[in-house]
């Protein structure tokens, strides 16, 4: 168990900065997710933590001790690879015991710990199989068992669920989270799947172009993102430009073409400033409620099962609106919508 800290980590590949002054702190036992689009530098950051890539600049600290000069095999991190990287010439139990053998533990202890790990991931019967004789989901569990059995200070995951089908992915997601909480091990998890990030993490670090643009709890990054790219990456959102009309104790009122909307003013918002608001489709309600209500016309409707996704036009602005239940509305229908009681102010591009 340990506290992990990255300080100004930078890594360039030629002209590409795969990690650009990345600074993150992960508390003891915390589950942090690095979330971002493909090529944003998540894997690079993870591999720097594991010591598989040397940073050009910056420090990696474990419990306050700089470890960036330690070779990979002495880092006491354990990684679950996207490809699982199971050794094809070793059985399941040999794979799981590998890290313990490297630490020269006694054969008895290794057998005992491997048995525990197998039980933990519910693979007891498969200990003598070879990786090629396992399904994708089983291979994934072996990879997890192999990582946790060494009792690492930090557990690292690089998109461990991305090779599995949707159903299994969802189930294993829950199992992983439960396992991590049971072990209480500090964890850094890489994914480009926002749903996964939100479901698993204590905190999410959103990365773009090698930079960490935002860190917060799943609720914070989803509901009140600070960066426009975060809002965009974490699902469907509405952007609305406006001018700050009033500021008071952490809140402000923004004058938009559609009317007044209240927003969180955490970022030193000034009177008269032009800002962009972001709010989720499910925060817009169909019908007249307390708050700013406007009339609009349905341009397009798609039924998604749990919600219906409407594209609504009002005063030359199109908004996405999600309604759970409710009557089906046809394109062309006039409706009244109520803007959310509070929205997020986002900055950048």
């Amino acid at each position: 168990m340990a506290r992990l800290e990255l300080r100004d980590i930078t890594k360039r590949f030629g002209r590409v900065a795969a990690a650009d002054r990345v600074s993150v702190e992960v508390a003891d036992g915390e589950f942090l997710t690095l979330l971002g689009p493909s090529g944003c530098g998540k894997t690079t950051t993870l591999r720097i933590i594991a010591g598989l890539v040397d940073p050009d600049e910056g420090e990696v600290l474990l419990d306050g001790v700089a470890v960036q000069h330690l070779p990979a095999h002495r880092r006491q991190t354990a990684m679950v690879f996207q490809s699982y990287a199971l050794f094809p010439h070793m059985t399941v139990s040999e794979n799981i015991g590998f890290g313990l053998r490297m630490r020269a533990l006694s054969a008895d202890l290794i057998r005992q710990r491997v048995g525990e790990a197998l039980a933990l991931v519910e693979l007891e019967g498969l200990s003598d199989r070879y990786p090629r004789q396992l399904s994708g989901g089983q291979q994934q569990r072996v990879a997890v068992a192999r990582a946790i059995v060494t009792r690492p200070k930090v557990l690292l995951f690089d998109e461990p669920l991305s090779n599995l089908d949707a159903k299994l992915r969802e189930r294993l997601r829950l199992e992983l989270r439960a396992l991590q909480q049971r072990l209480g091990v500090t964890t850094v998890y890489v994914t480009h799947d926002q749903a996964e990030a939100l479901a698993l993490s204590d905190r999410v670090a959103v990365m773009f172009g090698g930079k960490v643009v935002e860190i917060g709890t799943p609720r914070q990054v989803y509901r009140t993102p600070r960066a426009r790219v975060t809002a965009e990456f974490l699902g469907v959102t509405n952007f609305l430009d406006g001018q700050v009309a009033a500021v008071a104790d952490g809140h402000c009122i923004v004058q938009t073409p559609l009317g007044m909307v209240e927003a969180d003013a955490g970022l030193g918002v000034r009177m008269g400033e032009v800002v962009t608001l972001s709010f989720r489709p499910e925060d817009v309600r169909i019908g007249r409620y307390e708050g700013t209500a406007v009339t609009g016309r349905v341009l397009h409707a798609s039924y998604l099962g749990s919600v219906t996704d409407y594209v609504v036009e009002s005063g030359g602005i199109t908004l996405r609106v999600h309604e759970a239940g409710g009557a089906a509305r046809a394109p062309g229908e006039e409706i009244t919508i109520t803007l959310p009681a509070t929205a997020a102010i986002v900055r950048g591009g």
Partner: peptide, 15 residues
């Protein structure tokens, strides 16, 4: 030999 296997071994403590 996949690089991942070598990385995995190093990560698990193989010098």
């Amino acid at each position: 030999v996949p690089q991942d296997l070598i990385d995995a071994a190093r990560n698990l403590g193989a010098s």
